[in-house]
């Protein structure tokens, strides 16, 4: 019985990781950039939500309406003025610069808040659950999983159906030609980063409701997100959902074997995928809209 329960919990946890990972996946798929401060921005979003919730006494879900668009703006600015600029130096510089940014954000949070862990109290949403076939399923996990799926479907539709999505795919294929047929490459990359950061904000708030966080929590969030993206296959959004689920399953089933083994089990699955199937479970093919 508990194994069935673990599988269900693992899949639901996978939704959280997928929500975390889709911003990373989008930015890698379009700009070939990995933002090493991804996790720290998520933690920053959680702190921001905390400030809004306690300052204005609004429900958490309302705070998302403020934090996500704000992060969209932050993403655009970070892309244009930090990531793009470092890309112009070299791709390795982007890694170093975003890593530096990660350290700066962590310590700024440490300075502004404290090392204590915080959490976003969402009342009944966090504690409530319903029973299906004898399994207890939390409202929050289901909400997060549904959100993750919705975000991925939305991103997929955006990429395949809108003019901006078309411009993004073109710029991702061939920046120079894209600009010579009228695409403002730097602007659309900024927009892509803005969208990615919007999802980071969602993920940060979701994680804040799901478990506690502190200023140093970012790197682990980044690692989980990256593991989900790589396990699923870089640049494929559906692969990212699958990768999140595989990671969630590995962690929950690992904990089932031994409480201290969960995260390590996830790492082992990730390293095994890198060693034996580096293109991931769903390798990216030329993603023409069907």
């Amino acid at each position: 019985m508990s194994w069935v329960n673990a599988v269900v919990q693992g899949i639901l946890l996978g939704g959280l990781y997928a929500l975390f990972a889709c911003g990373l996946s989008l930015m890698f798929g379009v700009m070939k950039v990995v933002n090493l401060a991804h996790g720290d921005f998520a933690v920053l979003a959680a702190y921001l939500a905390l400030v809004i919730v306690s300052g204005f006494e609004v429900p958490i879900l309302w705070s998302v309406l403020l934090v996500a668009p704000l992060f969209g703006l932050v993403g655009y600015v970070v892309q244009r003025f930090i990531i793009q600029r470092s890309l112009d130096v070299s791709p390795l510089t982007t890694l170093l610069v975003t890593f530096g940014l990660s350290i700066v954000i962590q310590n700024a949070l440490l300075e502004a808040a404290s090392a204590n862990s915080e959490s976003l109290q969402s009342g009944i949403l966090a504690s409530g659950s319903f029973q299906v076939a004898g399994l207890h399923v939390g409202y929050l996990s289901v909400l997060i999983f549904v959100t993750a799926t919705a975000v991925i479907v939305g991103l997929q539709l955006f990429l395949s159906r809108t003019s901006l999505g078309r411009q993004l795919r073109a710029a991702s294929d061939d920046q120079e030609t894209a600009s010579s047929v009228g695409v403002n490459v730097r602007h659309v990359f900024g927009v892509a980063a803005g969208i990615a950061f919007g999802t980071v904000a969602l993920a940060g708030v979701a994680f804040g409701m799901y478990s506690s966080f502190d200023p140093a929590a970012g790197p682990q969030r980044l690692i989980f997100a990256f593991e989900a993206v790589v396990i699923g296959g870089m640049g494929s959004l559906w692969g990212t959902l699958l990768g999140g689920i595989v990671l969630g399953l590995a962690q929950v089933l690992g904990s089932q074997i031994d409480p201290g083994f969960g995260v390590l089990a996830g790492h082992i699955v990730f390293l095994a995928v890198l060693a034996f199937r580096p293109s991931g479970l769903i390798p990216q093919v030329a993603q023409a809209a069907q």
Binding site: R166, R169, A170, S172, D173, D174, T177, V183, A288, A289
Partner: peptide, 12 residues
């Protein structure tokens, strides 16, 4: 653009 369909290549 290989990621775009023929029509999208025109539309862009």
């Amino acid at each position: 653009f290989p990621s775009l369909t023929l029509e999208e290549n025109l539309q862009i």
